[in-house]
Amino acid sequence: MFIGIPTFGTDHGKSGIGSYLRELLVRFDALMEDSGYTFELVGPKEDADYYLNGLKHIGWYAVEDADKNPIHNFFWNQAKLPPLVRQRGYDLVFFPAANRRLSGRLNCPTVGTVHDLAVLHIKEKYDFVHSFFNRKILPHLIRRLDHVLTVSEFSKNDIMRFVAVQDEKITVTHLAADQNRFKPPVDLQAVREDIAKRFGYDKPYLLYISRLEHPGKNHVNLIKAFSLARDAMDEPFLLVLPGPDKERAEEIHEEAARSPYAKDIRFPGFVDWDDIPLLYQGASLFVLPSRFEGFGLPVLEAMASATPVVTSDAASLVEIGGPQTPRFHPDDYQGLATLLLDLLQDREKQESLVKANLAWAASFSWERTTALTLQSFQTTYSTYERRH
């Protein structure tokens, strides 16, 4: 089976969707010699350089300037992608960012991953044009997919409720922490010394890895909670917030500047792929305060790195974080401050949480996710062939 994979909407690897695609491609590449599958990315050189780095078998068809902005790419997908699919002879097209980029109709079966329907939960997330597209046009395009993949039971229920896709047309493929990348440190002191040299973080730190997007990612309440907790802390912790600036990021920076501990709130920007596991390992605590997550992969990555985790109780985070994870309401920054103090001052509680988290994270598997994804390709293709 020859499968085309448009990379539009995956943020050139600089987001959770980009990490998702990269993890799948690594495993697709390892399987290709014996599986009968052939894969080809469709997108710009920037995407090929990132996603295919170190891979041997996956092809690339160059398409530049098709994704100048979401509206431009929408029309490109409707007008230019269908003839391209016919020209390349794909047996199936896989859209890894189907909650962002889709084509209305192709001459082959389609499978798309709808990671979440965040726009329906966070009204301030997009401007009028993007909101109109996501609320009125995107559900119509999703329903045209031959099969829908999604990353949590929470998102599946959203798709059934808001898009009216039938249960049997949706497969949940949970994500996972890559156990080869994310694992407990062999020497924690050496890790922290390395972090001090690379990043200049010479104090213990709390970590939250996410694009800087307000209000959805909820950095502002985390900063408020951090400031309250620092007032009561004996030890001068840092708050480290890696990620690129996105919608309304200036409001996050303004809140940090207002904090009496502004000098201890660090914004390193986008962090290289190789440095992310190190930051998890060195953190005293990982916090995910988001107002909405379709999955929340950093939760499992931090757990696999033997770092205690605290999350909000929003959307899929209860499902993904497991019963052992301490939680708070995303608006309750005072409650979050209390949780932070409670965990940071109780070594026994931290150790118990780390032990439970390691077992929980290990119950998720990229190999299982890959197998379910390939199975959906095969079933969708076979069903399509019988109907046509």
Rank of each mutant, 00 (worst) to 15 (best):
M1G: 10
M1C: 10
P6A: 04
G9H: 00
D11F: 10
G16P: 00
G16F: 00
G18Q: 02
S19V: 10
S19C: 09
Y20H: 10
L21Q: 00
L24I: 05
R27N: 12
S35R: 10
G36Y: 09
T38G: 14
G43N: 02
K45Q: 15
D47P: 07
D49C: 02
K56P: 12
H57R: 15
H57K: 15
I58F: 09
Y61I: 03
E64Q: 13
K68Q: 11
K68R: 14
P70W: 12
I71G: 07
A79T: 12
L81K: 04
L81T: 03
V85N: 01
Q87P: 04
Q87R: 12
R88E: 07
G89M: 03
Y90W: 11
Y90G: 00
D91Y: 05
L92K: 05
P96G: 03
P96Y: 02
A97L: 00
N99D: 15
N99I: 00
R100F: 00
L102Q: 01
G104R: 08
C108G: 09
P109S: 06
T110L: 06
T110Q: 05
V111G: 04
T113W: 00
H115R: 01
L120A: 13
F128E: 11
H130Q: 14
H130L: 14
N134G: 14
I137C: 03
L138C: 02
H140E: 14
H140R: 14
L145M: 08
H147G: 04
V151T: 06
F154K: 01
F154L: 05
F154V: 03
K156F: 05
K156G: 00
N157F: 12
I159L: 01
T171I: 03
T171D: 06
V172C: 03
V172H: 01
A176L: 07
A177F: 01
D178H: 09
F182A: 11
L188G: 07
R192N: 14
E193G: 15
D194N: 14
I195S: 10
A196C: 15
D202K: 15
K203W: 12
L207S: 09
H214Y: 10
H214D: 10
N218E: 08
V220K: 03
N221I: 07
I223V: 04
V240Y: 08
P242V: 02
G243E: 02
D245T: 11
E247L: 11
E250A: 09
H253R: 13
E254T: 11
A257L: 08
S259P: 01
K263I: 11
D272M: 14
D272S: 14
D274V: 10
L278G: 06
G282I: 10
S284I: 07
F292L: 15
F292V: 12
F295T: 08
L297H: 01
S305P: 00
S305W: 04
T311F: 09
S316I: 04
S316Q: 06
L317T: 03
E319S: 03
P323H: 04
Q324P: 05
D331Y: 09
Q334H: 11
G335S: 10
G335M: 06
G335F: 11
L336G: 02
L339M: 12
L343E: 06
R347P: 04
K349F: 02
Q350P: 00
E351C: 10
L353C: 05
L358F: 04
A359R: 14
F364M: 09
S365E: 05
A371H: 08
F377E: 09
T379L: 13
S382V: 12
R386Q: 13
R387C: 10
R387M: 14
H388V: 15
